[in-house]
Design a protein around this nucleic acid. Sequence first.
DNA 1: GCAAGAGTTTACGTTAACGTAAACGTCAAC
DNA 2: GTTGACGTTTACGTTAACGTAAACTCTTGC
Lengths: 135, 135
Amino acid sequence: MKPEAKAVEPASYSISELAREFGITTRAIRFYEDKGLIAPARRGQTRIYSPEDRVRLKLILRGKRLGFSLDESRAIIDMYDPAHGNVEQLQRLLLHIEQKRAQLEQQLRDIQSLMGELDEAEARARASLKQNSEN
Amino acid sequence: MKPEAKAVEPASYSISELAREFGITTRAIRFYEDKGLIAPARRGQTRIYSPEDRVRLKLILRGKRLGFSLDESRAIIDMYDPAHGNVEQLQRLLLHIEQKRAQLEQQLRDIQSLMGELDEAEARARASLKQNSEN
DNA sequence: GCAAGAGTTTACGTTAACGTAAACGTCAAC
DNA sequence: GTTGACGTTTACGTTAACGTAAACTCTTGC
């Protein structure tokens, strides 16, 4: 067995550590907690974040990059929990997954076209620059 | 020459026609105009939208689906205009294009991982359902 | 033993993107 | 000639996602 293959992952983080790492403010992190997206442990009244909490934060930020609201991100994150026991809930979950998938596919198409158009826009700009330099 | 190959495209649209077509309110469309994203013609004080205006609206909504702000969408739309004469502007445009491209690539990666995770979540949910049905 | 630094709660402020409502104009239809 | 249907401007309201500030606590170095 290898002694230490991976970089040592801290057992816990402070709020400011996470804020620094992800380029957000501590205020934002506490706000996510208020909205029920994270629930860090406490030592006294100080928040202590586990590696799992860190992952949740990462997921929230990924959601933001995709234009999701915090509510949507929470819904997505909840899909990972095995806490969904009853059949009805699971059915709803599956439905929700399908909706998300459809939305992501639309975003994919949107990105494809936008990228293509960026290519054209770049070409036009470069052509225009060349024109200018020839005068 | 073919007489009428494509469906006839109306020469102009009313505000409510566009609202209906895109599933938004007329209020939103006027708001976009306030923000300088569209500038329809007027007959008297009634707005008349050209096919080009319609395209702009489409681009705005695509931007929204990708989580862009109206300002960002305006910036993107402006990339299509050949109105950028001077060299400095063109340089800035190219820079802007590169930034957008980077952002889109990040979104692509985000979507890829999310889709993968949706697959797993679906599998877990289905497995859980099967469990329940076997009791 | 106390000042500095990090963390906490509480609360009011701010921005973007519209919603909603009021009050009015215009035009075809009945 | 009035009643809708559609359009207009003006203005205040609302929600999400934090920012900012005040006032307090806790720990740690010196």
